[in-house]
Amino acid sequence: MKTTSGNFFEDYTLGQVIEHAVPRTVGAGERALYHALYPARFALTSADSFAASCGLGEEAPLDELIAFHTVFGKSVPDISLNAVANLGYADGRFHQPVRAGDTLRSVSEVIGLKQNSNGKSGVVWVRTTGLNQRDEIVLDYVRWVMVRKRDVDAPPPATVIPELPAAVAADTLVVPEGLDFTAYNTTLAGEPHRWGDYTIGEKIDHVDGVTIEEAEHMMATRLWQNTAKVHFDATNREDGKRLIYGGHVISMARALSFNGLANAVIIVAINGGAHANPCFAGKTVRAWSEVLDKAETTAPGVGAIRLRLVATSGPSSDFPLRAEDGKYRSDVLLDLDYWALMPT
């Protein structure tokens, strides 16, 4: 038997460490494809000259979510090939920029297990670490995923639910070496609004919408080498639909957030996130953000801003999130809490 059907829930053990296969060298092609798939136009990752003016060298780093998707994709064959759904994220940090020519690989550790009451699936928590060709940590994060059982009669593991912080502490955020926003050009960046112009509690409607296409989603999922069956195989779900990769929604919402947050140019942490409802081709994604917190950094001219990014297939202008029963509204696709860096 030379093929594999992937891991099922009963195959995971607490403390298990999995080194994922197939390192990936990323380059300018990934940047171009990313910008073709999403309306991404943050200046720092779009222009070498702009990155150089901010102290980041002569070549612009790749978008942070390119690194995230690549590291995530490496983990899919071992973690979520037989997933029902990817449920959420927490405690994620971007430790350094990824440049064209870097080679990324992933390692995951199982940190939590809980069988579902139906006995047919369970939730697996993993901490995934992305490393470059020098074995330096590029990013790490926790995610939890619902995975099918191969044998419903297999005994359940002891339930262990990891304790995770509500947010990454501001004083632990990693600011890229050399970053300096004292000469930041807001005209070239596209908006005048700086860190001091935002207030905690402020909500921003990002106005624009993008209809999700089946072809673009399939191209994106292949680009990240994400092999989860629910994204490719229409027979894998009872409704006969291919589930849109949650990261596709994250990148679409992040790109839409440019309109109102053009100067939140670097993602440095993911505090938490939930794919509130499934997304399928044909839905139009809109987004809004809420300012949750702000913090100073020691880097010249650089402030940190904590943002809630919500993607919805309904209206964005009334800032929908939860229904009267406290549950996410049916049109909410994503609820993502992250820290970004912004010129003061």
Rank of each mutant, 00 (worst) to 15 (best):
K229W: 09
G246K: 00
A215T: 11
L256T: 11
G201Y: 09
W224H: 09
A255Q: 02
K203P: 00
H217M: 11
N226H: 07
T199W: 08
L243T: 05
F258K: 05
T199G: 05
V249F: 06
G240F: 11
E214Q: 09
F232P: 00
T227Y: 11
M219V: 15
V249R: 01
G246P: 01
R254P: 00
D197K: 02
H217S: 13
G201N: 06
M252L: 14
R237P: 01
D239E: 12
D205T: 06
D205H: 07
Y245A: 15
F258L: 11
E238N: 10
R237K: 08
F232R: 06
F232V: 10
T235H: 03
V249A: 03
Y245F: 13
Y245L: 14
H217T: 08
H248E: 04
R222A: 15
E191L: 14
L243W: 02
R222V: 11
P192V: 15
A253Q: 01
H248A: 08
H248N: 10
T211F: 14
A253H: 01
V207W: 03
L243Q: 04
P192S: 15
L243H: 05
A220P: 00
L256S: 08
N226Y: 04
R242V: 06
V249D: 08
I200Q: 04
E238K: 08
G196K: 10
R237A: 11
D197S: 14
M252F: 01
E202P: 00
H193W: 14
K229H: 14
L256A: 12
E214F: 05
F258N: 13
W224G: 09
H231S: 04
K203A: 00
I250E: 08
A234T: 05
R242N: 10
I204G: 03
M252H: 01
P192M: 14
G201T: 06
W224T: 13
S251T: 10
A228Q: 03
K203Y: 01
H193A: 14
E214L: 12
M218C: 08
E214A: 14
R242G: 04
V210Y: 03
R222M: 11
Y245M: 14
G201V: 07
Y245D: 13
